[in-house]
Amino acid sequence: MVPGFDPHNGRPEMYGNAYIETTPKTAGKSLTENEDPVKLAEFEARIAHGEKIEPQDWMPAEYRKQLIRMIEQHAHSEIIGALPEGTWITRAPGFRRKLALMAKVQDEVGHAQLLYSAAETLGKPREDMINDLISGKSKYSNVFNYPAETWADTAIIAWLIDAGAIINQVANSKGSYGPYCRALERICTEESFHLKYGHDNVVYLATGTQVQREMVQDALNRWWPPIMHFFGPSDKISVHTETLMKWKVKMASNDDMRQKFLDEYVPKIWDLGLTIPDPDLKKNEETGKWEYTEPDWEEFKRVINGDGPCNKERLAVRRKAEEKGAWVRRALIHDNEQYSIPLA
């Protein structure tokens, strides 16, 4: 256990799975204590019928809070996720790969815009979200606190991290909040190119020279632990988690998503003759579940709380970008503008 860190005491945690706080400060109390029981029943009936919730609808305070948190952190993950790959644009091998990488990085930033907009419909202005990102108050997916050391790292990120993200996003696109679902559908369509592009890059290296094969194997060795962290630790099943699942905020357990990822991608990695750096990784044919060495959750928590190899660099780069653009943005502000929450 990391000193001072209790995973169940309600401190902000960042789970790669669904960016959800599974143990809020109100732990022990009912999530809906102060809610109007009639409105709550209508709200829950609507979700049970498979209908979507729209921004103008009544919703429990905790539903709004968890969604803002989840969508905002997802947006941050897209915008920060553009950095480790963006690093390699100038050194991409060949023009086709350079163009494809630029398109992918631009997509990621576009995804952040779509997600910030979805979060904004719940009442948090975008300026507040960006301030919470650059001050370190709000989290983003932990994997982006690791560096892309070689070109092969960008290939592994584009293939396997994006694969993990797609599994997560496809699940969440069946959630209950209309604007988030709409954004995710569009995002998933674009991600399919990222996945193919990443796979193509990995296959090229894995079927190449001895040096190229070693390069991609090294990258896989470096990225396997963050990939296993990506979906977050096993959920603690609580009344709170059950409520979030009933409200279709959380769509699947962290372990279920990790199993789905392993099921789909371990065979594809093995197809290339690459070695996954976990000697205990195997599918239990009786249970149908993958068995693996438990990832180092101490490291996960340490990195989330700021002590990863790139946390400082990522936030400093983002902060610098905001600072450099400030004079342009401020010059174009209209003094008599009234803030209006976007509709959808």
Binding site: R319, R329, Y339, P342
Partner: peptide, 26 residues
């Protein structure tokens, strides 16, 4: 990034001000 000479800590005065991202258009 190395050439940027990035400061290590956040400068609170440089936070975004309200409306700095302008209005929204559908």
């Amino acid at each position: 990034i190395n050439r940027l000479n990035l400061p290590k800590e956040e400068n609170k005065e440089k936070a975004l001000t309200p409306q700095e991202n302008w209005a929204t258009f559908e």
